[in-house]
């Protein structure tokens, strides 16, 4: 069952690579949150109530509901639904991105497979690395900062997957702190994103290139 989730997760990466609609991005990030919740439930062998609540809060509520909701509101307020760039151009770019995604996933798989580490869950690890790299790549090829934020969330999801893949056992307090940090960083980012929407006419990064040498 968890393998299915991972495959769907990787599929969302392809979709993200191809998508030209902000709405799609938001939907996909929500779906990823739900998938992560599923994976986490399956992987959690000893069910601790506090832990369960944390996982629930982090994936289902935070990643699956709150963040997509926030992003919806922002995109609506700033009247962005379709990316500004020329559609055909985006298609071509998207096609390249698909090939790159495939390559990244393939290489990640090869890399994780070669590690031969007994404690490593190869499927999650592959997905995690692919998500991280793809997240950065999404940021580099897009100009819209909402998509930047979403790509950041993709990286976050990758990290979450990796934490599962390595069976990390951080102390509870640390886990909570990390959760809080990520949560608040996204919040802060959305707040500033909103500000940018007010200050500038649109939320393309072309506006944000004043600071350079």
């Amino acid at each position: 069952m968890s393998s299915l989730f991972v495959i769907i997760f990787l599929g969302t990466l392809f979709y993200l690579a191809l998508s030209v609609n902000v709405k799609n991005y938001i939907n996909l990030i929500g779906i990823q949150g739900l998938l992560l919740f599923g994976i986490a439930i399956f992987e959690l062998h000893e069910l601790n109530v506090v832990h369960l609540i944390l996982i629930l809060a982090e994936t289902l509520i935070f990643k699956g509901i709150i963040v997509p909701g926030l992003l919806y509101r922002i995109s609506k307020r700033n009247k962005i639904s379709v990316l500004k760039n020329n559609k055909t151009h985006r298609k071509a770019k998207g096609f390249n991105m698909v090939i790159i995604t495939a390559l990244v996933i393939g290489l990640s798989f090869v890399f994780s497979h070669n590690q031969q580490d007994a404690h490593l869950e190869i499927q999650y690890f592959t997905a995690a690395i692919s998500a991280m790299i793809m997240g950065i790549l999404f940021i580099t090829v897009n100009k819209n900062i909402i998509i930047h934020l979403i790509s950041f969330l993709v990286i976050e999801n990758g990290i979450f997957l990796m934490a599962i893949a390595v069976g990390s056992n951080m102390p509870m307090l640390v886990n909570a702190a990390i959760l809080l940090d990520i949560f608040s960083s996204v919040l802060v980012l959305t707040v500033f994103l909103n500000r940018i929407g007010q200050f500038f006419q649109d939320v393309e990064t072309d506006q944000l290139t004043e600071l350079k040498d």
Partner: peptide, 17 residues
Amino acid sequence: FAVLHTGKVQHYLIYPL
């Protein structure tokens, strides 16, 4: 050498990668 500081976040994230 002074070409890295382009002012674009996209570029800034390529460097670490």
